[in-house]
């Protein structure tokens, strides 16, 4: 074909782009059609096969992409659900923590109040005991001082005459008890 075209090109032109000889045109056209036909015949199947394969590949890729998209959407939904669950769990935990905190706070307040009351009771008891002890100590001290003073007064009043009277009284008492 290229040889024929080369031969044509090497011939001298007639000033038009179509050869002046009609036969040449016809043969050229026939040859062209034959070449085209051969080319179509020879290349149709491989090209079709190629394009069919290409279509299948693209279809598979599209299917895979669709599958991936579906899976991604599924994963997204799962993640969303998980997130929703985690939010719920978080809310539940917070709620439980708040409830527990309320209970602990209430117990702590109750215990603190009880402790405070116990401390108050003990302090009052200690106060009463301390007051009683102080009164007792004071009373004892007053008694001691009073009797110390009384002892000194008695001692000072025990002159010889008083001593003799006491001795005589004792002897009389011992004698009278017989």
């Amino acid at each position: 074909m290229f040889t024929y075209l080369t031969i044509l090109a090497s011939e001298e032109g007639n000033g038009f782009w179509i050869p002046a000889d009609i036969k040449e045109v016809i043969w050229g056209t026939l040859a062209f059609l034959i070449v085209v036909g051969l080319m179509v015949k020879l290349t149709k199947a491989p090209i079709a096969k190629y394009y069919n394969g290409r279509i299948e590949t693209i279809t598979e890729k599209l299917n895979e992409a669709e599958q991936a998209r579906v899976e991604a959407e599924s994963e997204r939904d799962r993640v969303k659900a998980a997130l929703a669950d985690s939010e719920t769990e978080k809310a539940r935990i917070i709620s439980e923590a708040e409830s527990a905190a309320q209970v602990i706070l209430a117990e702590t307040e109750s215990r603190a109040a009880a402790d405070a009351e116990a401390v108050k009771q003990r302090a009052q008891a200690d106060l009463v005991a301390a007051r009683n002890q102080a009164q007792s100590d004071l009373s004892g001290e007053l008694t001691r001082l009073s009797f110390g003073a009384a002892e000194r007064v008695v001692e000072a009043s025990l002159d010889d005459a008083a001593q003799q009277r006491l001795i005589d009284s004792y002897i009389s008492q011992v004698g009278s008890q017989n």
Binding site: E151, V154, L158, L166, S169
Partner: peptide, 8 residues
């Protein structure tokens, strides 16, 4: 120590 009186 008796102060006064007698202890027998």
């Amino acid at each position: 120590k008796v102060m006064g009186g007698i202890v027998t």
